[in-house]
Every structure is written in structure tokens, then in C-alpha cells.
């Protein structure tokens, strides 16, 4: 297990440096003067310009600049946002819980519906349920998130008025952020109706962000189950006279979960992409919206920093998945 972990970590390091190169070169590759871009100042005098060039270290060799940049990153210095004047990392930590909460709900939604749907579809292969579920999954799989989000907002928020249009909670409620998770903070605040309001705000974003993972998980669960149900050990479990829920829910599912967990992990890693669009549609104040906003306001330190941070998150999620995969698959655990 340890060797397994180390080998995975060894893969992360070069990937990380690759991304830092991209992020480092990013402002330098854009049209326009990186000095002015990074400074975010207008009407710069020649003296001020020289000062800025020196301040950003643009008068030094590129390699030194890069090493300096990475050294700063390793020390947690991701630069300062032009818009908020806060350190990038500070803004990240205040926005990240919103993304985390949304992602958590989206993946939970996808797992809680996707796995049982996949199991039932596999066990009743060819049934009406199977055909309907897999048809819906096929549509969900190729659903354009932006369009899907707008459609749901128009129907459920606009026409029916069942769900709020955007944000995380009604302005009526106000309380301090303790954990950053609105649902938990609402509970802690003890304000009547705050929790259910936070949940109501989560419904549509959760569905929108969870749709693709749901479709993928349901299909993967079905195909993994179909494969496993034909295995000898499932026949053994039946021959032991075990009840079907144990044969399917324990003996078959435990093995089918191995590829499904990988899928869940990959989907969690991909979630960031969907989160950026979903947060945009619902004005969800998370790091996806942060990244988009920073691009449109040309807040380059934030663009650079959020790029690196999001990449790091994706890599960490994938590492976590690998570890989990090792834990549920005894074959790997003992070999690794």
C-alpha cells in the first residue's frame, strides 16, 4: 500500500510542475504587456513602469523568474488579487467551501440514484426499467450543462416558482460563516427556516452538476454488475442458499464497486469543469465562478492561482480515488 501511494505521489510531482509552467507563462503569452496586466494599473508613468518591471522581477532571466514563482507557490504565495487586494489563497479558502458543498451534494445525488439504478437495470436486464433507465442515462450523459441549468431555472424557478433562482441562501437569513458550508452553518445559526432555505437553493445546482456523473455511474454500475453476475463466485453464493439481496448486494456488488469507485473518482475529478458552468448559471459563489470572474475582469494573479489550485484539487481527488481503489480491491492492496 505504501509503495502504491509513493508511486502515485511520484506521478503528481511532475504534473504539478507542468501546470506551474503553464500558469507561469500564461500572462506572458497573452497579447498585451504582462507588466501592465499583472499590475492592473492604468496610466502608468515610465518611472512607475520601471519600478513595476523591477518589482515583478521581469528584468531577471526567465528561468530565475520561474524558480522564484514556484518557490513562492511552495511557500503558499499565490500572489494578490487585483480586484479584492486579498492574497489569492485567502480568497480561495473563503470561496472553496461553496464549491465543495455543491460538489458533495452533486456526487452524493449521482451515487445515491446511480448505483441502485444500475444494479436494478443489470438484475432486470432487458426489462422496461433497464431500457428506460439506460435511455435516460444516454441523454443525461450528453447533456450540455449550461443549457440544462437554464432550462431547469426557467421551468422550476421561473414558471413554477418552486426553487430559488440563484445564490446559496435568501438574504433574509444572515449569520456568520463557521464551516463555510451553508447547510451546516444554517443549522448552527438556529434560525428558523434557514436550513431548508439553504437546501432549496442547492436542489437545482445539485441536479445540474450531478446529471452527467449520475448517468455515467448508472451505466458503469450496470455493466460492472452484468459482468460480475456471470462470475463463478456469484454462482457459489447462490449455491450456498444465501438470499438474493446478499448475493447481489454483497457478493456481486462488492466486486462491481471496484470499477464503479474508479468511475466515481474520475467523475469527481471532472466535476470542477461542470462546477464552473453550474456556478455561473446559478451565481453560486464558489471557485468556478471565481475563475470565470477573474478571467472576465483580467485579474491575472487569480487566473494563475485558481488554475493551479483547481489542478491540484483534481490531482488530489484522483490520488484519493487510487487509495480508495486499493482499499476495496484486496488484490491490489496486497500486491501494491
Amino acid at each position: 500500500m505504501l509503495r502504491f501511494l509513493v508511486s502515485r505521489l511520484a506521478l503528481i510531482v511532475p504534473t504539478f510542475f507542468g501546470i506551474t509552467v503553464v500558469a507561469f507563462l500564461f500572462p506572458r503569452l497573452l497579447r498585451g504587456d504582462p507588466v501592465l496586466l499583472l499590475a492592473g494599473e492604468r496610466g502608468v508613468t515610465p518611472e512607475r513602469y520601471e519600478q513595476l518591471v523591477h518589482q515583478f522581477g521581469f528584468d531577471r532571466p526567465l528561468v530565475i523568474q520561474y524558480l522564484d514563482y514556484v518557490w513562492g507557490l511552495l511557500g503558499g504565495d499565490f500572489g494578490t488579487s487585483i480586484a479584492t487586494k486579498n492574497p489569492v489563497l485567502y480568497d480561495f479558502f473563503s470561496l472553496f467551501p461553496a464549491t465543495l458543498e455543491l460538489s458533495f451534494f452533486a456526487i452524493a445525488f449521482a451515487i445515491i440514484i446511480g448505483i441502485p439504478a444500475g444494479i436494478i437495470a443489470a438484475v432486470r436486464r432487458g426489462s422496461l426499467f433497464d431500457q428506460a433507465a439506460m435511455g435516460v442515462a444516454l441523454v443525461g450523459y450528453s447533456m450540455p450543462i449550461f443549457w440544462w441549468g437554464l432550462l431547469l431555472v426557467v421551468v422550476f424557478s421561473g414558471m413554477l416558482g418552486w426553487t430559488p433562482i440563484d445564490g446559496r441562501i435568501n438574504v433574509r437569513y444572515f449569520f456568520d460563516s463557521v464551516t463555510g458550508f451553508m447547510t451546516i452553518d444554517a443549522l448552527i445559526s438556529g434560525q428558523r427556516g434557514a436550513f431548508s432555505d439553504a437546501v432549496r437553493h442547492l436542489i437545482l445546482p445539485t441536479i445540474v452538476l450531478g446529471t452527467i456523473p449520475l448517468a455515467v455511474i448508472a451505466r458503469q454500475t450496470r455493466s460492472a454488475m452484468l459482468e460480475v453476475l456471470g462470475e463463478d463466485y456469484v454462482r457459489t453464493a447462490r449455491a450456498k442458499g444465501l438470499p438474493p439481496r446478499r448475493v447481489i448486494g454483497i457478493h456481486a456488488l462488492r466486486n462491481a464497486l471496484i470499477p464503479v469507485v474508479t468511475t466515481i473518482g474520475l467523475q469527481t475529478g471532472l466535476l470542477m469543469g461542470g462546477a464552473i458552468l453550474t456556478e455561473h448559471v446559478f451565481s453560486w459563489p464558489g471557485i468556478g465562478k471565481w475563475l470565470l470572474d477573474s478571467i472576465s475582469s483580467r485579474d491575472y494573479p487569480v487566473v494563475q492561482g485558481s488554475l493551479i489550485i483547481i489542478a491540484l484539487i483534481v490531482m488530489l481527488v484522483n490520488l484519493l480515488v487510487d487509495v480508495l481503489y486499493g482499499l476495496i480491491n484486496p488484490g491490489i492492496r496486497h500486491r501494491g
Partner: peptide, 8 residues
């Protein structure tokens, strides 16, 4: 080998 469940 195949008749025993690899996960348990």
C-alpha cells in the same frame, strides 16, 4: 479460485 469471492 474463481468460485471463491476475491473480495472476502
Amino acid at each position: 479460485m474463481a468460485s471463491l469471492n476475491p473480495c472476502f
